[in-house]
Design a protein around this nucleic acid. Structure first.
Lengths: 165, 165
DNA sequence: TATTGTTATACTCTATAACTATA
DNA sequence: TATAGTTATAGAGTATAACAATA
């Protein structure tokens, strides 16, 4: 049982560090311009990386509820950073695309964040930065099915939610 | 400039993954008992790890504002998980201590989180778990001066808060 | 006067549920 | 009937500012 205990301790410590990331994120969020909160900024970021997306797909990538995506996209469109185009393949769907104005805004936001990270992590070996990024991406993938991005099929292994609490 | 650009891209990617940790944390938070939100749970966790603490010190360790600590401690005391003792050395100060009831609650919460992590990360090599934990701890340390980690001495450089907002 | 801690207020993020419109 | 997306509502987390008590 000693092995299991060691594992438990390691997991507990990981959870603690994961929670602490919140403080880092809040510090980063404080750098954002007043008219660009973190939510809409994330929308810009993903759309820039992935190109035009449908709302459903964007929701999956953001790992939030569809209602959250909808709200943040609304804020972005209200400011002219994103346009909602009709989807030629599906009348129910919208295709979201960054506008030049949105790209410009994103560049500004991104520069601020990158500068902040560079200031703190500039002395890290590049390997450590990429290793951390990679591990976080894997972590996210492992926990990724928490959010039923597509309708939870009855046969899916989605019953985690039934924690018989 | 190609090198600087590569760095920038790496930092941008890291920021993205850092944000994504929020989704993992939300999933973990969903496992908590209804009467123990994430805020109070963090209070229990730190008090258990560090032993009795003054509010100021707890605030530093949680990396939040003092008002937030105060509120979360209030919730914990209201449920009998923490007691606020007078500080013999300073009449303004309170010493916070976990009660047996609080320890029990924490053990339960911790078990749930560890079980969830074990379920997702059980197949990870142990090295990866510790590497990720270590890198996150270092990351947190780099960004840590937002919130001075050791007791803020009167002579400390604490004026960061004066953001001349 | 400076510091510890609390409370009042406001804002963001998030999820759940109800709704519209297409398929 | 099922799916894509929106909106209304509610709850947690956080920070700022104003305040009380003690040093």
């Amino acid at each position: 049982m000693a092995l299991a205990t060691a594992r438990s301790a390691a997991y507990g410590e990981l959870v603690r560090q994961l929670n602490a990331v919140g403080a880092v994120n809040r510090g980063l969020a404080r750098l954002l311009p007043a008219d660009c909160p973190a939510g809409p900024a994330a929308v810009l970021h993903v759309l820039s990386r992935e190109g035009p997306l449908r709302t459903t797909r964007l929701t999956e990538l953001l790992a939030v509820d569809a209602s959250v995506t909808s709200r943040h996209v609304s804020q972005a469109t209200a400011r002219g950073w994103v346009v909602r185009l009709p989807d030629p393949d599906d009348g129910r769907s919208r295709v979201l695309r960054l506008t030049p104005s949105g790209e410009a805004r994103l560049a500004e936001v991104r520069d601020r964040c990158v500068a902040a990270v560079a200031h703190r992590l500039g002395h890290w070996p590049e390997d450590d930065v990429t290793r951390l990024t990679t591990l976080l991406a894997r972590l996210r993938a492992e926990f990724g099915d928490h959010r039923p991005a597509r309708a939870a099929q009855p046969g899916d292994r989605e019953q985690e939610r039934t924690t018989h609490a």
